[in-house]
């Protein structure tokens, strides 16, 4: 959190045409470039996968149970093998990406928005309100997410929306705390003081001047959190209180596949790999973004080979 404090954003200044510069900067970091390509692929799977392969992903064929990967004997759909009910792993991975990305994105967005706003207000208003928000953060942090999950899933159904709620609530404290801490520092800065002196309302000061300054830090955390949420979703499935079939997510696929680790490793490996590559890509891209958006660091991308520091 504090680590990112120095990165408080100065948006990418664009002397040349914006998109070209961005692409150029991206190209100069090959890891980030590949990561961006991969994310584009995942997102298009999430958007189109269920439309194209929804039926294939649920069509069962017990004779192909645990069919091994890397052969084309049963067509390209089975190139990643089949699961324990003989369903195409490839199709399931692509279809599951929709729920997975939707759950993670929605939960992180929920946590970031609600947590961020609460934190901003707590930092700016302070006093009893600030205190309540901080105590709330304490409570949520030491509250076992498992219990929230069981409560929600017992009272409602284990559907995607409910899972988003569970994961979103449990991830809120970090945004509450971070944005409050940032605000505490920023509100003493000259430009905020100036805005106040010039008679801007508190509301305006917070949302016009403070929020944009806090946002980059929050997005960095969100990129990390995205990974965390996908893994937490998987862990809930492992414990039997997460999303349940017939819905599918990568996390659920890993959780179900773990029963077969010693006979059919691919059931758990491919969805695990998908989670890993997605989060890795997000992180690489976000660390690229941090450097690209920071004028004091950007030279690292502009000079072909990093000079010794």
């Amino acid at each position: 959190m504090g680590a990112e404090r120095n990165t408080a954003a100065v948006p990418t200044a664009a002397p040349r045409s914006g998109a070209r510069v961005v692409l150029g900067l991206l190209w100069s970091d090959k890891f980030a470039f590949v990561a961006a390509l991969f994310l584009i692929f995942v997102v298009s799977c999430a958007v189109f996968g269920p439309l194209l392969l929804g039926g294939t992903a649920t069509s069962m064929n017990l004779r192909l149970r645990n069919f091994p990967p890397f052969t084309l004997d049963h067509g390209w759909l089975f190139v990643l093998g089949a699961d324990s009910l003989g369903r195409s792993m490839l199709a399931r991975l692509m279809v599951a990406s929709q729920n997975t990305i939707a759950v993670a994105a929605a939960a992180v967005a929920f946590a970031m928005t609600v947590g961020g706003v609460l934190g901003l207000m707590a930092g700016f208003l302070g006093g009893w309100f600030g205190n309540i928000v901080m105590r709330l953060a304490d409570i949520i942090m030491s509250f076992p997410s498992l219990l929230i999950a069981v409560v929600v899933l017992y009272m409602f159904e284990p559907r995607v929306a409910n899972l988003v709620l569970v994961l979103g609530i449990t991830r809120m404290p970090i945004y509450m705390r971070t944005s409050r801490a940032e605000v505490l520092e920023i509100r003493e800065r000259p430009f905020v003081a100036a805005a106040r002196v010039m008679g801007a309302s508190s509301f305006r000061v917070v949302f016009r001047h403070v929020a944009p300054t806090v946002l980059p830090t929050l997005t960095t955390i969100a990129a990390l959190d995205f990974a965390f949420v996908m893994l937490a979703e998987s862990a809930l499935s492992f414990l039997g209180i997460g999303i349940q079939p017939p819905e599918i997510t990568w996390g659920l696929m890993v959780a179900q596949g773990r029963n077969y680790l010693n006979v059919a490793w691919w059931l758990a490996f491919f969805p695990g790999l998908a989670i890993m590559l997605t989060t890795l890509s997000l992180n690489l891209l976000s660390s690229w973004l941090r450097i690209a958006a920071d004028p004091t660091q950007r030279w690292r991308l502009e000079i072909p080979r990093g000079r010794d520091g």
Binding site: M60, L62, L85, Q244, P245, P246, Q256, N259
Partner: peptide, 17 residues
């Protein structure tokens, strides 16, 4: 019911199909 017997979930997915 989750885990009522080994592979209980798969059995229900197959029945469903």
């Amino acid at each position: 019911r989750l885990g009522i017997y080994p592979n209980a979930t798969e059995a229900m997915e197959a029945t469903h199909a």
